[in-house]
Design a protein around this nucleic acid. Structure first.
Lengths: 154, 154
DNA sequence: ACTGGTGATCGCATTCGATGCTAATTCGCA
DNA sequence: TGCGAATTAGCATCGAATGCGATCACCAGT
């Protein structure tokens, strides 16, 4: 397949794309009459600065290390809250469990066929695409997933 | 979002995109030492001409009507065989079960946020996209999913 | 500070989609 | 026609995710 790539990644490397700061999330939760418990604060911290695409289980493992006894149920609960507040997005792929994406920027994904590794990619000139077949459908969003092999598996 | 749409759907409406004919699938199965049972023949027929994106359960329901006693297990088995032969593709979305796509043409999808309805769309000028962030990743495939509202739900 | 009320936590049960397993059966080549 | 190999069907199992409910804890208002 033919894909034009740009070198813009250097500029991206400088910025860190993650969920908003624990402080902001705290206010957001309070504003919605949701309580800010130690469990939630821990998850806020874990997510902030997270550049990967962790599963609920992975976050549960990280959280358990710092707070033994925290429940997987609580992790799911908080992640779902964040998703419905738009502070986090969730991704689903065949053959693996839901991944949570702390990057809520407008971006897309590349997924390795071998190991399942997921990386963020940025797409320009999206509006030069020419789409046929909508016929009454009103598009509001688009997400592109590139399949291929990552550097490690190549 | 800004998306250019073309009127090419009229020309597409003339063609029928579905899985290959039962005869072809029969030869394909034989060529791989896979047996062509009545259950499989039935599924070949159901899939051929199918323009939607049925789930395994839906196909099982259709199949059961014509062959009471057929097993859901067998339906999954045959669908998976077809997928690994490249005669069918499978799609997964959050909150719903795997959908099988009899259209193996190069195309993309639009999915209604309300009812989950899925339609095929065709994209031109894909190679005018400018992508950054691959960094070692070798893209081989891309799939675009448009989210929005369909004609019925709008 | 204290306290009441409302939401959260946790762990267990449950759901749902999908697959593993296996005895009995059937396909298809010779 | 017969034999070996693949398939079927049904049940068990699995994994991800959610429902539920008793207990607990945050926090707004006093």
């Amino acid at each position: 397949m033919l894909i034009r790539t740009s070198c813009r990644q250097e500029s991206f490397a400088d910025s860190i794309f993650s969920v908003r700061s624990p402080e902001v999330l705290t206010s957001e939760f309070r504003a919605r009459s949701l309580k800010v418990t130690p469990q939630r604060q821990l998850l806020f911290r874990l997510l902030h600065g997270h550049t990967g695409h962790p599963t609920a289980e992975a976050l549960y493992a990280e959280a358990s290390a710092q707070m033994p006894g925290i429940s997987l149920r609580t992790v799911y609960q908080t992640l779902n809250d964040l998703v419905s507040m738009g502070e986090l997005s969730s991704l689903q792929f065949a053959g693996s469990s839901t991944r949570f994406d702390p990057n809520v920027d407008d971006h897309h994904h590349a997924r390795c066929d071998e190991c399942g590794e997921l990386r963020d990619v940025y797409v320009d000139h999206f509006d030069s695409l020419l789409v046929s077949g909508f016929a009454g459908f009103t598009p509001e969003r688009a997400s592109i997933v590139f399949g291929g092999v990552c550097a490690d598996c190549g």
